[in-house]
């Protein structure tokens, strides 16, 4: 393992410090926690607080999306481990400007339970806290035999759209209804070229042969649905687009937003090549791609590979919300 670090057990603490010291005009640390909050004075223009968080190792998620028009605060857990309820609770309190706080949770058993406990704690303070659980990863069957679909890169679409409506002044009921409407329209699937190495572990979570890839791997290295020999980008795009096409029951004339997300160790050059192939395939389906983004948004440490997120834009207003400028580090 080669990593730029000091004591691996302090890596999250040091990362958060480095982050807030790099962007002192945008972010500050909530005292006594590893959560960050935007600098803007919350009381001046009170809005519904939007809070997200989860294990670390997915940077720039989630702290990179804190800022005007997106998240109010983000809680950073240990690497690939859910943050604890006391930290989430502090973030809720700090993000509350009197209009309630909305939590965006990725669907992992640890995250769901810790956020729910924090919600219970905040309810005792009479803060109106509501939440959505994002489960965009279609690699996992949504059956009674699993925890259900995982939350992955599509979560940032939820951050963006809810953040935009919250800034505009939407109340918590409206934000909640919107979250329930937006989330089922977001679907993601990934392909890994190599595993990720957790600093405290020192070994990759899984190994792939030099010429092998795995479809459907999760952002913590959860096993995917198929391994095969690496082929060209076009071939990978066909596999992922086909899965998403089916999941969306895609039909000609529909409108979509697309993210190609790097998992950490894949160069942008390859991500653009992949997006080029994806857009060819979508053009062949005669659907409209109104919004695109390419880059590392929800990584898995040093995993190589990409995920593809496709969101169906069923409401015309959503596109404008995706396009609104924000002051975050990473959007």
């Amino acid at each position: 393992m080669k990593k730029i670090m000091n004591d691996p057990s302090q890596i999250v603490t040091e990362m958060v410090q480095g982050l807030v010291r790099s962007y002192p005009d945008q972010l500050k640390q909530i005292p006594g926690t590893e959560a960050v909050i935007k600098i803007a004075d919350l009381k001046q223009r009170p809005q519904v607080g939007i809070v997200s968080g989860g294990g670390s190792g997915h940077e720039p998620t989630h702290a990179g999306f804190v800022g005007d028009g997106m998240l109010t605060a983000a809680v950073c857990g240990q690497v690939f481990t859910s943050p604890t309820p006391d930290q989430i609770y502090e973030a809720i309190q700090a993000a509350d400007a009197g209009r309630g706080v909305f939590l965006i949770i990725k669907n992992y058993s640890g995250d769901v339970m810790n956020f729910e406990m924090a919600k219970d704690m905040a309810a005792m303070d009479n803060i109106d806290v509501r939440s959505i659980v994002v489960d965009d990863d279609i690699a996992v069957e949504n059956s009674t035999y699993t925890q259900g679909r995982r939350g992955v890169a599509g979560t940032i679409f939820v951050h963006k759209i809810l953040g935009a409506y919250a800034r505009q002044g939407a109340d918590i009921e409206a934000i909640e209804a919107l979250a329930q409407q937006v989330t089922p329209n977001i679907k993601t699937i990934g392909v890994a070229l190599s595993g990720a190495t957790v600093p405290e572990v020192g070994q990759p979570g899984f190994e792939l042969a030099p010429d092998e890839i795995e479809y459907g791997v999760g952002i913590h290295g959860e096993p995917g649905y198929r391994r095969e020999k690496l082929q060209d980008s076009r071939h990978l795009a066909v596999e992922l687009v086909n899965k998403l096409k089916k999941a969306h029951h895609m039909t000609a004339g529909e409108h979509f937003a697309v993210i190609v997300n790097g998992l950490g160790a894949t160069p942008l050059m390859e991500q653009y090549v992949f997006m080029n192939d994806v857009l060819d395939l979508l053009a062949a389906e005669n659907v409209e791609v109104d919004f695109t983004k390419v880059g590392n948004y929800m990584t898995s440490l040093d995993m190589a590979g990409v995920s593809l997120t496709i969101m169906k834009l069923i409401e015309p207003g959503w596109l404008a919300k995706l396009e609104e400028p924000v002051t975050t580090i990473a959007w």
Binding site: S82, T84, P85, D86, S109, G110, M113
Partner: peptide, 10 residues
Amino acid sequence: ISKVGGASGP
């Protein structure tokens, strides 16, 4: 609750 994290903490 405040130290374990993961699923087993809660």
